[in-house]
Design a protein around this nucleic acid. Structure first.
Length: 430
RNA sequence: UCCCCGGUAGCUCAAUAGGCAGAGCGGUUGGCUGUUAACCAAUAGGUUGGCGGUUCGAGUCCGUCCCGGGGAGCCA
């Protein structure tokens, strides 16, 4: 008998098939028994009907508990009463293990309880749908860059010093010296961009910040493209194309998961090019007019991000920030050297910043001055400075946060559900 | 790090003004021919987060610690 996956069940109508999986739930009604079987790709209702309550299949059914593992065999039939439209008329139940006291019931639980059982919570429908969207988003990102001729360059996770020198770093021992977990692959990618032209890295980033909000993870995934000779304008276009491509893929391939999540697709369908662009100089008075206490020179807080996201149904691109509030490597505007050629993409529906990037300094002397001004250890940046010595080149790039993007796609408020095992302040188990 | 909130049965919660510790779900047993988190009946299940204090009496009031949740700052 052929082993098939539930997501393909429609192709096997009226055939005898085998499903290998787990009991999602079961019900009985006199002479009929229902098992909802889960195999990782979907849930299928399997039925047994018999007038004999000593029927061997009934006896096996009675042993089954939630999340017991089993193999079921039977005939696939279309039936409107079954969830999903198909069901399996059971011929055989092979029990692998009867699970005892599965902790997660099919009802409401609190988040702390579910997080404590994250390894099992992943099996539930909603979590399954979110992570299906995550894999789609990641696949879309890889396809997008691969199809445009970008080279994947894996940057190191163990680094000898701070990439940006600002945020708190996780320290670890590296034999007889110290090492730090990477916060970003960007600086290394500026080197690979000089070798390959257009590159991207895609990996985890670590921030030892004591952040405790729905938008922060201690360990998160980020994709960072870097393009030699690209300007700020080029990088905005690239970010816009990437976001539109991700949305298109999610809407095309993960409709059923969005439905499971009760995510209204309309706000995603409404995203269109060009994304509105506004400079920092222009946005500050507009925020003040809407009641924000922001002063010129301040960075945006959560309330400001909310106000910005209400301005458009597409992400809003904020550019030309005061150099003082941005990273040391940001290229200044040639007419207004107090402004940095950076861009932040603010997602609609209050999902906040999903992309941060811009043009990097390529002038050797300016970079050396910025390193001094930020009190960064010159020796650690010697290789980075070399990039400006040996054929320097204007270049730009950005970082897109995977989990923030997935939360936005799914319409869920807390980022912790968008990664299989979130690392949070006060939570590193399981 | 700061502000706010919470911790009672395996889970989700209730318990008047300080006065006998409760319900639903899950478990177990029985019933039901189409269930959709099925339903009906019965049944078992408790060191009220820890320590200390006030009181004749504390789940309830006070102190302290632990654990968690929400928000801020910072950022993807």
């Amino acid at each position: 008998m052929t082993w098939v996956y539930i997501e393909d069940i429609g192709k096997h109508e009226d055939e005898d098939v085998e499903i290998r999986g787990w009991v999602y739930n079961k019900r009985s009604g006199g002479k009929i028994r229902f098992i909802l079987v889960r195999d990782g790709t979907g849930i299928l209702q399997a039925t047994v009907f018999s007038a004999d309550d000593q029927n061997p299949l009934f006896l096996k059914f009675d042993e089954l508990t939630q999340e017991s593992s089993l193999i079921v065999r039977g005939r696939v039939r279309e039936d409107k009463r079954a969830p999903g439209g198909y069901e399996l008329s059971l011929q055989d139940i092979e029990i692998i293990q009867v699970a005892k006291d599965y902790p997660i019931a099919l009802k409401e639980h609190t988040t702390p309880f579910l997080m404590e059982h994250r390894h099992l919570w992943l099996r539930s429908r909603k979590q399954h749908a979110v992570l299906q969207v995550r894999t789609e988003v990641i696949r879309a990102i890889r396809n997008f860059f691969d199809d445009r001729g970008f080279r994947l360059m894996d940057t190191p996770i163990l680094t000898p010093s701070a990439c940006e020198g600002t945020t708190t770093l996780f320290e670890t021992k590296y034999f007889d010296q110290m090492a730090y977990l990477s916060q970003s692959g960007q600086l290394y990618n500026e080197a690979t961009a000089a070798a390959f032209g257009k590159v991207y890295c895609f990996g985890p980033a670590f921030r030892a910040e004591k952040s405790k909000t729905r938008r922060h993870l201690i360990e998160f995934w980020m994709v960072e493209p870097e393009v030699a000779f690209a300007t700020l304008e080029d990088t905005i276009e690239l970010g816009q194309d990437l976001i539109l491509f991700i949305i298109e893929r999610v809407l095309k391939n993960r409709r059923a998961d969005l439905e499971e999540l009760e995510r209204d697709p309309k706000p995603l369908e409404a995203v269109s090019r060009p994304f509105p662009r506004i400079t920092y100089d222009e946005i500050v008075p507009r925020l003040q007019a809407k009641g924000s206490p922001i002063q010129y020179g301040d960075d945006f807080g959560a309330p400001e991000e909310g106000l910005i996201s209400e301005m458009s149904s597409s992400p809003v691109c904020i550019t030309h920030f005061p150099a003082a509030i941005k990273a040391f490597y940001m290229q200044p505007d040639k007419d207004r050297p107090d402004l940095a050629l950076g861009v932040d993409f603010m997602a609609p529906e209050s999902y906040g910043e999903i992309i941060g990037g811009g043009q990097r300094i390529h002038d050797l002397e300016l970079l050396e001055r910025r390193i001094r001004e930020h009190n960064l250890p010159r020796e650690a940046y010697a290789w980075y400075i070399d990039l400006r010595k040996y054929g320097t080149f204007p270049h730009s790039g950005f970082g897109l946060g995977v989990e923030r993007t997935v939360s936005w796609m799914c319409g869920i408020k807390h980022i912790r559900e968008t990664i299989p095992f979130p690392r949070l302040l006060y939570r590193i188990y399981p």
